[in-house]
């Protein structure tokens, strides 16, 4: 096996695992080695001086053994942490692969069906249905990849999370406007109200936009034929509260506790064939938890949902 000098650099090795130095096995082993060396020298010196006192020898041996035990325990624990992180990563990769496979299969099979001899021979009136499948599943994969990238960037701190004071009302209007075509096509309306003296919020502008895109997008897509969505901004003490109400399908009671978990989708959403990655609310919670925001909701299956979040105000 080739030996690389960089393997000696413990700090570089530990950085690779992305865990604190005191939890890094290489670092702990080095400390343990140094400790054994120092202990041996001290023990030798003490032994030479107090060799005739067996109680002192016993005491030193016990102390050294205890220290080694503690270090060994920390090492085992850090290995467990590494193994757990590794297991979670594997599980994540498994779930992501499954989530990507579904639209990929749809794409492949729709294309293969369009190319099949039977289809070519038959009446081609249905062709658009299959092109729709291809388009929708292409979008679905794109959405999933975008969400996964957002999560990775959020976790690595690579998204612009620099806080600034801005007008939340303007950002809400901008996001509503992005959905304009969908709203018009489905004859839906967003009623938006905000008090005139609303203070600015102090948060990250791009991250708050992601939060709004997800919450407003959800309210629109889970509305299921209901035509009105209500958005209210208000000031409560030193925070600005955003509230969005829809009269859509709502979230079943037994699913509510999982709603912020990654890849979780409420059963009724899956059943109604509303496309989603199961990552939107996970991202929203991740952002708000990391930026001094709070989120809460009330929902009733078949009646609709009310999602709220608050951000610190700054006039």
């Amino acid at each position: 096996m080739a030996f690389n000098l960089s393997q000696i650099n413990i700090f570089a090795q530990c950085r690779k695992y992305k865990i604190p130095l005191w939890q890094c096995p290489q670092f702990l082993f080095t400390i343990m080695g140094l400790f054994i060396m120092v202990a041996s020298v001290v023990f030798y010196a003490i032994g030479e001086r107090y060799i005739f006192d067996p109680r002192m020898v016993a005491l030193v041996v016990i102390l050294v053994a205890m220290m080694l035990l503690v270090i060994a325990f920390i090492i085992t624990h850090s290995f467990e942490n590494l193994a757990e992180a590794n297991r979670m990563k594997t599980e994540f990769v498994n779930i992501v692969s499954h989530q990507l496979r579904a639209p990929l299969t749809n794409l492949r099979w729709a294309t293969q069906f369009l190319l099949s001899k039977e289809f070519q021979d038959s009446d081609q009136a249905e062709k658009t249905d299959y092109f729709d499948i291809i388009r929708e599943n292409g979008n679905r994969m794109e959405g999933l990849i975008d969400d996964l990238l957002t999560i990775t960037r959020l976790k690595d701190g690579k998204l612009d999370s620099k806080k600034a004071s801005f007008v939340l009302e303007d950002l809400v209007k901008e996001v509503i406007n992005e959905h304009k075509h969908f709203l018009e096509a489905n004859n839906m309306k967003v009623e938006f109200s905000s008090p005139e003296d609303l203070p600015n919020v102090f948060a990250s502008y791009p991250l708050t936009k992601i939060v709004l895109e997800n919450l407003i997008g959800n309210a629109i897509h889970y509305s299921q034929g209901s035509k009105k969505i209500e958005i209210i901004l208000k000031c409560q003490k030193d925070r600005v509260v955003f509230t969005i109400k829809d009269k859509g399908m709502g979230i079943p009671k037994e699913d509510q506790k999982y709603i912020f978990e990654k890849f979780f989708r409420a059963r009724n959403a899956v059943y109604a064939e509303v496309n989603g990655t199961g990552l939107g609310l996970f991202i929203v919670k991740l952002i708000l938890d990391g930026t001094n925001g709070k989120i809460w909701f009330v929902s009733q299956e078949g009646k609709g949902s009310i999602f709220n979040f608050s951000l610190p105000a700054r006039s």
């Binding site: 749809n106 099979w109 729709a110 249905d129 299959y130 499948i133 059943y271 064939e273």
Partner: peptide, 13 residues
Amino acid sequence: EDEAAIQKTLGES
């Protein structure tokens, strides 16, 4: 099968 797309492609085939 709950995926409408799969129902359509494989079902039709």
